[in-house]
């Protein structure tokens, strides 16, 4: 990667891709985003390769992992949500026809229980060259979704 970041990188690193054909293709495709990256780290070698990048002032983390032989899974954590039927239905209603779909990861047994909301996107390996546009659309979707989560958690309207 040759361009400089618009952010001070500090202790954060931009790693080179390991000797893995899919990760090398992903790293090459991400090159245009280099000025916006705050970090780029690759998973240790394993059956399913992957990387995590940090983007923007909020250091939004996006993981890109090989999901199957044909697909990459892009993951963007959004935040915590109260595990109420109304809130979960609101997320599911918004999944229709969207590139980035909501899913729920771990659930914390607080009162009321909280779950971690993630936006995910499946990308065929043949579409790796479109990764910059996919990552940027995910970044936009993630910031927009924060307002939704705040509203569903009852923090959206100060009036």
């Amino acid at each position: 990667m040759t361009q400089t970041s618009i952010w001070p990188l500090g202790d954060h690193v931009i790693e080179d891709a390991p000797d893995h054909p899919v990760m090398q293709a992903v790293a090459a495709a991400l090159e245009p985003l280099r000025p916006a990256l705050r970090s780029l780290t690759f998973d240790p070698p394993g059956p399913r390769s992957g990387l995590t990048l940090g983007l923007g002032s909020g250091f939004h983390l996006i993981s890109i992992r090989q999901h199957t032989d044909d697909l990459l899974l892009l993951d963007l954590p959004v935040g915590d949500l109260m595990q109420t039927p109304e809130a979960l239905c609101a997320l599911l209603e918004r999944n229709a026809g969207r590139d980035w779909a909501f899913r729920v990861d771990s659930v914390t047994p607080t009162a009321p229980p909280q779950c971690v909301v993630v936006l995910e996107h499946l990308l065929p390996l043949e579409d790796i060259p479109t990764l910059p546009a996919r990552v940027l659309s995910g970044w936009r979707a993630r910031i927009l979704a924060q307002g939704l989560l705040d509203a569903l958690n009852g923090q959206g309207d100060p009036l």
């Binding site: 923007g56 910031i143 959206g156």
Partner: peptide, 13 residues
């Protein structure tokens, strides 16, 4: 980023 945050919140009002 600020515009997206504003839009995300405004869309919920």
């Amino acid at each position: 980023e600020s515009e997206l945050r504003w839009r995300g919140r405004l869309m919920q009002v």
